[in-house]
Nucleic acid binder design. Structure first.
Length: 297
DNA sequence: CACCATGTTCCTTG
DNA sequence: CCAAGGAACATGGT
């Protein structure tokens, strides 16, 4: 959002090319073209993991809202119009000198006028109204493992598989702990950890130059241009963030706090990484039942 | 060849 | 009706 907003603000869509229908969801290619052609971007905002593109009000009619999602492999960036398009350019907006490209290798992403998905999202963890009591309320009485719960976008919007593990590590909570058995203290720690992890990630993502349209390897999905937003933050541009991910994808490597080997387990078909000492499974036995007292009055 | 991957949605089972 | 679990989507890296 922060990278795209200044790039798109004020730019006008001259034409629309849809190369992969699938990413449009319920919106037809024709309708996307007809709707977007001639529209001028007024800004980019965000809800959970969805990007929300707004347009300038030019007539009495309400301008459209365009909703984007990067899925696992999506990227959005400006690209010189004369340059080769990437292999998996799902949708391309002609903005004149440049194209706005939605590239998505696996086509799991979305680029659609259908705003339905936004309504199913839970609260924004960084919103002022998101208190730790709200978090307790959202976790409810579910006995699902807390890690699985954190990935549920209707419980809380925006946490993905990486930051679920990271937040639990920082909170010192076992990923296997049933959501309804967290103590008030643990929920407060988790609330803090979630916000800290997300704020740091946003700071990082706002700082690192993405260089998606870099001239050297513009056609090439070269490895180096990929993914410095994730993993170990070794991007030389942001030395402060070296090793900012403490557990994700670090199975077998020593925990930065206690030196114990980081574990990898599967939960709901997805990898979870954690330190069994710092987030001790042992503690699980000590947890009392129904300690989510915010729900018990 | 096997297995893994930053996400969501749909289907089945209980 | 709901919760939980798994497959599907599609491509590429190791």
């Amino acid at each position: 959002m922060r990278q795209l907003d200044p790039l798109l603000r004020g730019r006008t869509v001259r034409d629309v090319a849809v190369n992969r229908r699938r990413v449009l969801g319920k919106t037809s290619p024709t309708r996307l073209k007809l709707t977007l052609k001639g529209q001028t971007f007024s800004g980019v905002t965000r809800r959970g993991k969805f990007l929300v593109f707004s347009f300038v009000r030019a007539t009495r009619k309400d301008p459209p809202i365009l909703v984007g999602h990067l899925g696992m492999t999506g990227r959005m960036y400006l690209h010189p119009r004369r340059a080769f398009l990437p292999k998996h350019a799902a949708v391309v907006l002609d903005l004149g000198r440049e194209n706005f490209v939605f590239e998505d290798t696996r086509y799991f992403g979305k680029f659609t006028l259908d705003t339905n998905a936004l309504d199913k999202l839970g609260p924004e963890p960084l919103d002022r109204t998101f208190t730790f009591k709200k978090l307790a309320e959202q976790l409810g009485h579910s006995k699902q493992p807390i890690k699985v719960k954190l990935l549920d976008q209707s419980v809380l919007a925006g946490i993905g598989n990486i930051y679920a593990s990271e937040a639990l590590f920082r909170a010192g909570i076992s990923p296997a702990a049933p959501a309804n058995q967290l103590t008030v203290k643990q929920i407060r720690a988790l609330w803090n950890a979630i916000r800290k992890v997300l704020l740091q990630a946003i700071r990082f993502g706002s700082t690192v130059p993405l260089k998606y349209e870099s001239s050297e390897d513009q056609r090439g999905l070269g490895k180096d241009r990929k993914d410095n937003l994730f993993y170990f933050g070794t991007a030389p541009e942001a030395p402060d963030f070296y090793e900012r991910l403490k557990v994700y994808d670090r199975a077998g490597r020593p925990c930065g706090v206690c030196g114990t080997a980081i574990q990898r387990i599967l939960q709901g078909g997805r990898s979870t990484f954690y330190c069994e000492k710092c987030q001790g499974d042992r503690k699980l036995g000590a947890l009392r039942k129904g300690t989510n007292q915010w729900l018990q009055r």
